[in-house]
Each structure stands twice: as structure tokens, then as C-alpha cells.
Design a binder for these strands. Structure first.
Lengths: 191, 191
DNA sequence: GCAAATTAATGATTTATTCAAG
DNA sequence: CTTGAATAAATCATTAATTTGC
């Protein structure tokens, strides 16, 4: 069998360097178009996909934050021991870490409206082939046909399919390839 | 101005009924193709998109679970009061709720391999137009051009763009429309 | 030196929590 | 208040470091 080409993305040094550079310079939650561009550029240095960029920033930010939190925590422990600065009340204010401007390395004018829609994005992956909901007549339940659900290389084309489905395409008629609802059917597949 | 096309999806009674039916019958985490199909079908009854279906199942499962947990918890409280059954040790076993088969309404043979890749999906939204990372020469930081970032209606087409970008398209040359890296540039936009 | 065995990093998913429209 | 939408935290899983025995 073919070597089952590389399961997960492995950033090249260049890619990594560039990503870190961007992060350091204040880009922490790129939106979709940004990711698109970054991906396009980074693909010069090796195989890479949009989701890789997305995940990278996600993870990097999260781990950065967690590192900082840990540090702060150990600090506040030390603080608590010399219980003098307590009135300063900065160290356990119970703020929702999620909405305080993330680790501002310097103090850049970035990310202002956290609320309105800062980081929209996808999140996908699936075994395209033989997509289907299979209805099990025995139990009257739906069963997804998960076969080699390795999502080894992620097919964005599905998105197009999704788009079509959601938007304007074939509608007002239950797909004929398979039955979606178990209310009365007794045969979901035809083979 | 135009009525700003409906901000969020509002399921019709039919759609809701069908979704609940499917959920009750054991479908709790549809995968991408399943969602695609469901969406296609439900669009008979009104406007609906893939992400709506996705979110619906996500939320429904989560809230179902939380409801049950709350119930269990209040139960265990009552239990604790009559501290006789304690040795039964079922009520605070410290199990990761996440990995105990979710609210099995009955006991269906569904969802077996939680691990391998049960619910892959997207998660998106962005203003396509004038996509870009804009470099601010003053601060030397990146700034995303978030304009009307309402993601009001979610453009899946971006995915195609993403795909293209990640795959084979223009590469080995920093995009010319704008500069991606601030290391030395002094002009990021050309107008 | 070099692989098998362990551990540390980190890419990829899933779940929990929060925001906000209706 | 309910619930669609979105984000962040926690977790899983695989790859790279590192160690260990030969």
C-alpha cells in the first residue's frame, strides 16, 4: 500500500519562522481572508493548508496564554505569601481571560472590536467517499458510515458541495439516494 | 439601507421537528456529508445553511448533556443528604463527562469510535471583499481590514479560494497586492 | 553509533463557556 | 429566557527530541 502520506502537517523552519514573526508582530487571530493569504504565501516553503495556519494560531495563542497564566499564578502564589500588596487587587480579579486583550506583547493598536466578529472560521474534515446516513432497519437508528475516517488530506471540495446544498440547489425533494428520516421507512439503502 | 438580511437562522417548526426527530433517533453528531444532506432536505421548509445544522446538533447535544448533568447533580445532593448510599460511589466518581457515552436516550448502538474522527467540520465566516492583511507602517504591525465584519451571510466560496491558495496556485512569490511581512517593508497598500 | 523505548512538543479535535438576537 | 453563534479550554494523537541499553 502507498505510504499513507504524512498524517499531520509538519511546518518547515521557514514557515515556522514566518508564522512566529507574524505572531510576535501582533497578528494573533487572523480571519479567513488573512489565513488564505498567509497560506498562499507559506505554501512556497512546503505543503500547507488553510486549516494548518488556523490551527497554528489557535494553538500558539492558547499556549502562550496558558504559559503566561501559569507564570502569573506562580507569581501570585509568591505574592500571597507576602500578603502585603493585596489591596492592589490585580492578581485575582476574576476577569474573564477570554476578553481581556490577549497577551499584548507591546501595546499595538490591533484587535479593537473583540465582540463584533474577530475570528470567523471554518473547522472541517471528513471522509468524503460514500457519504451517507445509513438507516438501520433493525434498530431504526441512523448510522454514519465511518470507514477510513482518517481525513488524511482533507477535501475542501466538500465545502462547495455544502454550499450548493445549503444555498439554492436541489430542494423541495428528499434526496433520492438515501432516506433521511426513519419515521416510516424500512429500507435506507438499496443494495 | 436594505433590511440587513436576517441576522440569525430561525428554524421553522417543520425544520425543528425534523431535527429533533433525528436527534431522538440517535443522530447526535452528524458528519459533514450528513449535514450536507440534512441541509439540502431541510431547505425545503425554509432558508437554512450547513452551519445552522451543525450548530444545532452541537448545541442540542451540549444542552441535553448539561441538563442531564444538572439533574444528576441535584440527585447526588439529595443522595449526600441521606449519606447512606455513599459506598455506591457512583455520584462523584470524577469521570470525564466528555467521554462517557452522551445522553443515551435509549441505548442505541450508535457512536462507537469516539476517537477516530466523529464530527469533523468547518466553522467560518468573513467579509471576502478586499481581503487583506494591511501593514501599518507607523506601528509596523499587521492590521486586518475588518469592515462590515458581520459575516451576515457567510460566504462559502471563500473556501474554494482557500483551497486554491493552499493547493497549487500562485506561490513562490510574496503576493504582490500587499506585503505580508513587516521586516522591512514601508508600504503595505498601494492607494 | 544506532535503534527501541520514553518523554516533550505541538498539530488536530472535541467539549465547555460565553455572547447576544429574538 | 431560550437558543443560535462564536470562542476558548481541554483533550487526544502523532511527531520530534531525548534517553537508554547494547
Amino acid at each position: 500500500m502507498p505510504p499513507t502520506r504524512t498524517t499531520r502537517w509538519c511546518p518547515t523552519p521557514e514557515q515556522l519562522m514566518i508564522l512566529e514573526e507574524m505572531y510576535r508582530n501582533g497578528l494573533q487571530t487572523p480571519n479567513a481572508p488573512q489565513i488564505q493569504q498567509i497560506t498562499a504565501h507559506l505554501s512556497c516553503y512546503g505543503r500547507i493548508e488553510g486549516k494548518n495556519v488556523f490551527y497554528w494560531f489557535q494553538n500558539h495563542k492558547a499556549r502562550d496564554r496558558q504559559k503566561m497564566r501559569r507564570k502569573l499564578h506562580s507569581m501570585s502564589v509568591l505574592y500571597a505569601q507576602s500578603a502585603a500588596h493585596y489591596h492592589n487587587s490585580v492578581h485575582h480579579q476574576f476577569v474573564d481571560q477570554r476578553f481581556v486583550s490577549p497577551p499584548p506583547p507591546f501595546g499595538h493598536p490591533f484587535m479593537e472590536t473583540q465582540k463584533t466578529s474577530p475570528l470567523p472560521f471554518y473547522h472541517q474534515g471528513a471522509p468524503i467517499q460514500e457519504a451517507a446516513i445509513v438507516h438501520d432497519p433493525a434498530s431504526n437508528y441512523f448510522i454514519g458510515t465511518e470507514r477510513n475516517v482518517h481525513m488524511a488530506h482533507f477535501d475542501w471540495t466538500m465545502m462547495m458541495g455544502m454550499h450548493e446544498a445549503a444555498g439554492v440547489s436541489s430542494c423541495c425533494r428528499p434526496l433520492k439516494t438515501l432516506d433521511l428520516f426513519p419515521t416510516k421507512v424500512s429500507q435506507g439503502v438499496d443494495d
